[in-house]
Simulated assay, not measured.
Amino acid sequence: MRSQCSPKDHLLDLDGVEIAIRTWGPEDGIPVLALHGWLDNAASFDRLGPLLDGCFVVAPDLVGHGSSEHRRQDSGYYLWEHAEDMLAVAESLGLARFHVLAHGMGSGIASLLAAMTSGIASMIFLDGMGAPFTVAEDDRVQHLARAYRLKRMVRRSQLQGFAEPESSRFDNLETALEQRRKRLDGELSGAAARLLALRDLLPLEEGYCWRHDPRLVLPEPMPLTEREACELLSEIHCPLYLMFGRQGAYAAGGFGLREAALPSHARVSWHPGGHHFHLEAPDRALVDQVLRILARHENGLQLRSVNE
């Protein structure tokens, strides 16, 4: 399928932190906030966003990802911080009511957004089912201790690519692309990996390095517990649609682990492809399904506003 419109790139200054944003469509279209997954960026929607005719798709790079700035060294990366950032993005763009289209970790951010605002008209999760990284209830203290020790070790090392110092810089583009493909999704095609990597690569005098903050690979010192992640899912009151890849992250039993936490109004569908099925080759059926959902709840929202 061919894209219908070209992307526009912007920078938003939110309390001194610059957030990079990519948008598609007319600003008076159906507002859609598109949230990418862990170590991805706004390019995650480069193939789906342009196909959503009549929509104003806003895809930010989460702080620390892609072309957005990093957090201060005395700060970190928590899902609820990302959620606060995304709510601030929506407010700064004047999106009082909007839809959420969230992939992977973005669905965890979306589950927190749902608890922070009543301004969400509908949510669509793309191979995501809430917070992806959780900790057992009886392991929180030990997890905090381990995360703190690792953070101290990293600070002392002063290595930009501390997780894998030998691969923090790349002599050529192809080497970087291969690492991105293997790290995020081993089934990801070279073309799809290229879209994500090009937005996240910084050219050097010799070679390339990643733009994203290397601290993103560190564990959150105080992540959500599985019970909390499930409770956030169950408390989503707006219309909720979950779309999974048949070879994605939830295909081998993962869906069943959280199925009971879904609210009764949630609707589930399965689609060809893996974890990044929306990026690999969004087919007409997927695009039409997303558009029907957005139109259905946008129209309902307008009718409710008139009645109120």
Rank of each mutant, 00 (worst) to 15 (best):
A121Q: 14
M86E: 10
L101K: 06
A59P: 04
M153R: 15
G94C: 03
L87F: 04
D61R: 03
I124T: 15
Y148A: 14
G64P: 01
A121E: 15
G119I: 09
D53K: 14
E84W: 11
A88V: 05
F125S: 11
S44L: 09
L113C: 06
G128S: 09
Q73K: 14
R47V: 01
L101A: 04
R149D: 15
A96M: 13
H82I: 08
A136E: 15
G104K: 09
I30T: 14
V63R: 15
P31I: 02
V89D: 01
Y78C: 05
A131D: 11
P132Y: 06
A163K: 06
V89S: 08
A114I: 08
D85W: 04
L126E: 03
L51A: 08
S67V: 11
L144K: 13
E81Y: 10
A131I: 15
F98V: 04
H99I: 10
H70A: 12
V58K: 07
L39W: 01
G37A: 05
W80N: 09
G130R: 01
A163Q: 06
L95T: 02
R97E: 13
A34R: 06
G29A: 10
A42S: 15
E84D: 14
A102R: 00
R97G: 08
I30H: 05
A110E: 06
A88P: 04
W38H: 08
G29H: 06
A43P: 07
D138S: 11
F56Q: 09
G128R: 02
V135P: 07
R97I: 03
S44W: 07
A145T: 12
L87Q: 11
G108M: 08
L79E: 06
A43Q: 01
L51S: 08
R156P: 11
V141G: 13
A121P: 06
M153Y: 13
G104T: 10
S111Y: 06
V57A: 04
L101W: 05
V100P: 03
R146L: 13
A163V: 02
S157H: 07
D139W: 05
I30N: 09
A145N: 13
E69P: 11
I30C: 08
L144H: 14
D46E: 13
